[in-house]
Every structure is written in structure tokens, then in C-alpha cells.
């Protein structure tokens, strides 16, 4: 049995790390982007961003002022036992979000959608958001992702049902059209981690796209060569557009293109995109049944990617 104080403290530390420490794979992608950038102003922008991200770790302050929607992903062992059960896990996550907000690791960003009421702690109806995946074992892996307003609100999240008649070309055209429109003038804070969901109902595709954007390790590839090829082709195509950091011109427009899929209906292919902003904030922690707490470098939400 994993005690409440153990998982609640781990949740708080995961939120704090997600908000203040850049993931190693995202940092590596930045270093590579700086090396290959030929636009001087864009290069300086990437360098300034990297410097600021490194300072956030030392200063323990947010990587970006917009600390985003608080989103949790729990990969739960089938025999995992938590004190108070999963209802208490969610209560603990809410308490941890409120505490992180009070201490300035998160900005009080979540508001009532109609009245604009600000509870001041990022807690409200259906927020934070929780997603579960069940696997063998008795441990729990907890991931926190902060989905920024820029990347979510300005057209980075879209869906379209593509006809089988249009196939891969239709999917790729949809992705490129969507990304160009949403990255204009830096709206979605490029260079983006672009997640693409193919198949399922529209919401399944949208969830896969979000998980591909927020949880996949930057630099990982889909194991199925057909999907890996879409990732590689779109990565190359999007980085040839000249959108660059904050849309002001440059060689790197996406840090990664990650595709996930589900089987779909014979009638059509639901396709969805989700862009994550350049800081691509996330953190993950594993707790074993013996209460051993381990920081994870990457969520490993999709097996080894």
C-alpha cells in the first residue's frame, strides 16, 4: 500500500519539476536547433530561450509565465494499491496543484469559462484533468503536463475527418495547412512538438494527438515504419517552411513530429493535431509498491517512446 503522504509529496515534486526544469530530450533538441540555425536573430532567440530555461532550474521558477492547463496522466499497475484509492489520488493532485500555485511555481491561470471567476489555485470543474492507462504490475507512474494557452488556443489543436479516398496525402495536407495557420506570428510558440492522432473517433484522435505532443520523448520514432515515415516526412517538410522560433523566421519550426494511431471506421479517418509549445513542459515520477520514489526522464506513456 502506497501511503497518501508519499504520493502527494511526489505529485507536488512532479508538478514543480514539470514547471521549472526542462526535460533533457527537449533541451537536446534545442541544442541541435541552435547548431543548425542559419538565421542570426533566430539563433539568438533560441540561445536566449535555452539560457532562460537553464536559469529556471537554478532559480526554481516557471519556464514560462503561462503555466498552462494542469494535466495528469497516470500509468497504473493493475495491482497497484493506494491509501484512499484513486479518488484520494485525485484529491492529492488537486492539493498539490493548489500548493504549487500558492508558492509561485504555477500562475493562477484557470478561470470559470463564463464568469471569468478566478479561484486563485487552478482548481475548478473538471480541472485538473486526469487520464489513466492500466498496465501489468503494482507500481504507478505519474506524469504532469502543462499545456500552454498559446499552443492550445491559437489553432494548434484541430481535427478533420479525412476520406479514405484522400489517404496519407489528405492527412499530411491537413497537418501542414493547420500548422502553417497556427504558427503564424508565433501564435502556438514554435518550434513546436507536434502531436498527430490518426484514427478512432474524433476525441480519440484528439487525445492521441495531445498525448503524442505532451508525453512522447522528443527524438523517438513510432515503431511501425509506415507511421515513422509520416513523422520523418512531416518533420522535414515543416522544417523547410522558414517559420522559425516564434514565427519570425528561421530553420527550426518543429522540434518533433509524433504520430500515434487507432483503428478507425470504414467511413473515414479522424485526424487531429496538437501542438506543444517550445518549452514542452512535463515531468514524470514512478512509485513502486515498496514506496520507492524515482524521477523518470520521460513519461514512457507509449511503451518505450
Amino acid at each position: 500500500m502506497i501511503r497518501t503522504e508519499i504520493y502527494e509529496n511526489a505529485l507536488f515534486e512532479t508538478i514543480k519539476r514539470g514547471a521549472t526544469v526542462i526535460s533533457p530530450d527537449v533541451r537536446d533538441a534545442f541544442v541541435r536547433a541552435i547548431e543548425k540555425e542559419s538565421n542570426e536573430a533566430a539563433k539568438r532567440g533560441l540561445e536566449a530561450t535555452l539560457r532562460s530555461m537553464d536559469m529556471s532550474r537554478e532559480r526554481e521558477n516557471p519556464l514560462c509565465v503561462d503555466t498552462g492547463w494542469p494535466i495528469f496522466y497516470f500509468k497504473v499497475g493493475n495491482r497497484c494499491e493506494l491509501e484512499g484509492g484513486f479518488v484520494e489520488l485525485e484529491n492529492a493532485a488537486r492539493r498539490a496543484v493548489a500548493k504549487a500555485t500558492k508558492l509561485g511555481y504555477l500562475r493562477a491561470t484557470m478561470k470559470h469559462p463564463l464568469t471569468g471567476y478566478d479561484p486563485g489555485n487552478n482548481i475548478g470543474m473538471n480541472i485538473p484533468d486526469f487520464t489513466y492507462k492500466f498496465v501489468d504490475g503494482d507500481s504507478i507512474e505519474m506524469s504532469y503536463a502543462a499545456k500552454g494557452g498559446g499552443s492550445e488556443c491559437f489553432g494548434g489543436t484541430r481535427h478533420r475527418i479525412v476520406a479514405f479516398a484522400d489517404g496519407i496525402k489528405g492527412i499530411e495536407k491537413f497537418v501542414i495547412d493547420s500548422f502553417v495557420a497556427s504558427a503564424r506570428a508565433g501564435a502556438v510558440c514554435p518550434p513546436s512538438v507536434l502531436g498527430i492522432g490518426i484514427g478512432g473517433t474524433a476525441n480519440v484522435a484528439a487525445n492521441l494527438a495531445k498525448e503524442a505532443a505532451c508525453l512522447r520523448t522528443v527524438g523517438s520514432r513510432h515503431p511501425d515504419p509506415m507511421f515513422a515515415k509520416i513523422e520523418e516526412d512531416l518533420y522535414r517538410a515543416l522544417n523547410s517552411l522558414g517559420i522559425g522560433i516564434l514565427g519570425a523566421g528561421g530553420n527550426t519550426s518543429v522540434l518533433a513530429v509524433n504520430v500515434e494511431y487507432a483503428y478507425t471506421h470504414i467511413a473515414g479517418i479522424a485526424c487531429a493535431t496538437s501542438t506543444n509549445c517550445m518549452v514542452a513542459r512535463r515531468a514524470s515520477t514512478k512509485i513502486d509498491a515498496n514506496e520507492k520514489v524515482t524521477e523518470m526522464q520521460s513519461p514512457m506513456w507509449f511503451g518505450d517512446r
Binding site: A41, A42, R44, G45, L46, E47, A48, T49, R51, S52, M55, S56, R59, N61, P62, L63, C64, V65, A185, G186, C189, I245, L246, A248, C277, M278, V279
Partner: peptide, 10 residues
């Protein structure tokens, strides 16, 4: 005018 980086700490 627009920023060219996300560099709150600077």
C-alpha cells in the same frame, strides 16, 4: 513589437 525568444529569466 514582438519577442523572439521565450526567456522570462533574462
Amino acid at each position: 513589437v514582438s519577442p523572439r525568444s521565450v526567456s522570462p529569466n533574462l
